[in-house]
Amino acid sequence: MNPESTTSPPNVSPSPPKPYSQVHLKRAGKKLLLILPDTEPKDVNKDWVELLQDLKYCLNHHKGTWTPGTAVHLLVENRLLDNRQFHDIGEALESAELKLIRVFTSRRQTAITAATAGYSVEQEAPKRELLFIEQPTPSNLTEPLHLKTTVRSGVAIRHPGTIIIQGDVNPGGEIIADGDIIIWGCLRGIAHAGAKGNRECCIMALRMQPTQLRIADAVARAPSENPDMIGPEVAYITSEGIRLKSALNFSKTHTFTPSEKGWTEKLTANLG
């Protein structure tokens, strides 16, 4: 039997379960979707104890319907989760031979906590037709997402605004932003700025050693040789594709030209 949505185990009391005590487990192709309620509880500690019990019951009820190591995507919408709660979820899934891979959330702090814990994050409303839930309509979703962490291999961060990383992006790590990408560290993984087609977006890093750079629909791979000069650089798009340049005074020497669909040098920059 395939996993279906489930609710809390029956209690002695005939009253229906509280809305926030419902946990849903659904299959989506080769992965499982774990959906937690979006309602903010009045008693956080009591709510989490009940929710964790429901999760364990749900996993035990459907035990044997998945292969060991099946990937799980966690959907929490606007619910706030802290480090301890992510640890509890990961531990419960691990005991059921499942692995938490990706977290969907519209809550900024939850996205930060999940990324810091090493999970891939999408701070964006998932598609309703895939997940069978109402899309959240949070405010300020496109404000910059600021993370103080190292993005490890296998971790992907997706955000509908600008992403700022205080740390390195290791090979195998992926950053996808509809806005700019700023890496206050070494970029060794994949970075995709202007993911929805904004060619004005840039990628900046203290050290550029990317596996791949993408801006809007343009793609560039890292040079085969390491650059002689090491320092902050900016990747930007021109009419001829993606280019790299020292980040020093870039905004003073370059301007985005809509007619060229890319950045060009300012005339004053060539006058000395």
Rank of each mutant, 00 (worst) to 15 (best):
K196E: 15
K261G: 15
I157T: 02
E225H: 09
W184P: 01
G167T: 11
I165P: 05
R158G: 01
P171E: 15
D168E: 12
G231W: 04
D228W: 00
E174P: 00
G262M: 11
T142N: 09
S259W: 04
N198I: 06
P232C: 10
D217Y: 06
G197Y: 06
N140R: 13
L131R: 09
G262L: 12
V169C: 11
P258Y: 03
I176A: 01
T257S: 15
K148I: 14
G154V: 08
L147N: 07
I157F: 07
H192M: 04
N226Y: 02
I176P: 00
I230S: 12
E225Y: 03
L147E: 00
K127H: 05
K245F: 06
M204I: 09
L187R: 04
W263G: 11
V151N: 04
R152H: 08
Y236C: 10
H192V: 05
G194Q: 02
S259N: 06
K127E: 15
L130V: 06
A177C: 08
T142A: 07
G154K: 00
P144N: 07
K261D: 14
V169R: 01
G194L: 08
E174I: 02
P144T: 01
F256H: 10
T238W: 13
P210I: 09
D228P: 09
A177T: 00
C202T: 15
R199V: 08
E265K: 15
R188C: 13
G179R: 01
K148G: 03
I203W: 02
K245S: 10
I190A: 03
T142I: 10
L130A: 07
E240F: 01
I164R: 10
T238M: 14
M204D: 00
R214K: 13
L187P: 06
E143D: 13
A156K: 11
E260H: 00
A156R: 03
T137C: 08
L131N: 11
C201W: 00
M229W: 02
P138V: 14
A191E: 06
S153W: 01
P223S: 10
G179Q: 02
G231E: 15
K148V: 13
S251M: 12
G172P: 01
M229I: 15
F132R: 03
V121H: 07
G194N: 03
P136K: 13
L131M: 10
P144F: 06
R207L: 13
T211V: 06
Q166K: 08
E233I: 05
T162Q: 11
G172Q: 04
A156I: 09
L187Q: 06
T257K: 09
A220R: 11
T255V: 14
E124G: 00
A205Q: 05
T264R: 12
T150Y: 02
P232T: 12
W184N: 14
Y236W: 03
K266Y: 00
R158F: 03
G194D: 12
C186N: 07
E174N: 07
R199Q: 11
H254G: 14
F250I: 12
S153H: 08
G167D: 06
A177I: 04
D217K: 05
S239E: 15
P258E: 12
K261S: 14
D168L: 00
N170K: 14
L206C: 11
L141I: 15
L206I: 03
I165V: 15
I183A: 10
T162C: 07
